[in-house]
């Protein structure tokens, strides 16, 4: 569900980029990217069994 929302947000950013003003496209893109990073941290909580 969360990734479906992200796809829809980026779809809206694309449509805004093609039909609407640049500011709207940029704003939608920024919101969607921030939510993508947040969703990544939600799904990447487990510790990696690695040592460097």
């Amino acid at each position: 569900m969360d990734q479906a929302i992200l796809f829809v947000l980026f779809l809206a950013a694309m449509l805004a980029a093609w039909f609407g003003p640049r500011l709207l496209a940029g704003t939608l893109f920024a919101v969607a990217l921030a939510l993508t990073v947040a969703d990544y941290f939600h799904h990447a909580t487990g510790a990696l069994k690695l040592s460097f």
Partner: peptide, 14 residues
């Protein structure tokens, strides 16, 4: 995580 990579490919297109 696979879906998030696809999301990032989509983001790359804007």
């Amino acid at each position: 995580l696979c879906l998030l990579q696809r999301v990032a490919f989509v983001a790359l297109a804007v």
